[in-house]
Amino acid sequence: MNWSKYSAPQAFYPLAGRLIPWFAVVAVALMGVGLYMGFFVAPTDFQQGESYRIIFVHVPAAWMSMFLYVVMAIWAGVGMGLNARLSFMMAQAIAPTGAMFTFLALLTGAMWGKPTWGAWWVWDARLTSELILLFQYAGVMLLRTSIDDMRRADRSSAVFSLVGVVNVPIIYFSVQWWNTLHQGASVSMSTGSKMAATMLMAMLIMTVAFWLYSIAVVLARVRCIVVERDSLPVWDEKPAVSQEVAEVR
């Protein structure tokens, strides 16, 4: 199969349209399983009581906020390197979803911090660097909308997102590098997990669900962007519009 043909927006558009329902259905199903496990199977935490259940949205949202930023920067870099329009469109499509997950990570973190630490917000390294990530997403989106010329907008926001990628390892390792109020990683690639198996399973299922959700909405958004930028309808998988046009002419 020749995958490179999908780098053309007109070939990618119907492919994305066919993929979206699959990602969406599996995402919703996994969210159902994850929520069930998180609320009915995972035990009460012996230290934090029931408030710990916030992690079933907090941790997946925080992971996605960082992961989506890296993916956005990669697409921006590919766009710069190959001068590929679809890559820039992918980067553009990822930013709002990444910003949303960053906002949710901060909000649910505050919901956890208030009963646990007694404060909605503290200026520790983890929270501050995550807040900066939100500003970075905002910067990428604002930079794009502030430049009228599409090619310049693409390249400027690509440079901005590539430079900002240094913040992602800072967020991730902040709990090791500095003495943060935010707890250290409970799940680590080197030492494994410090959580009960059902807690960990619920959290991982929710993470996969959020990941598939992100793919579905990003593909849906990139389709909108393709239509908005090029307004060429012949790519539509349903030939109704083109037929109607032919009849009018």
Binding site: G49, R53, I54, V57, A61, M100, L107, T108, M111, Y213
Partner: peptide, 19 residues
Amino acid sequence: MGGYGLYVWTSFIATALCM
């Protein structure tokens, strides 16, 4: 939610509303 209902449900409902 063991007295944490406000915080837990705000988190989950806010996430659902955003999505």
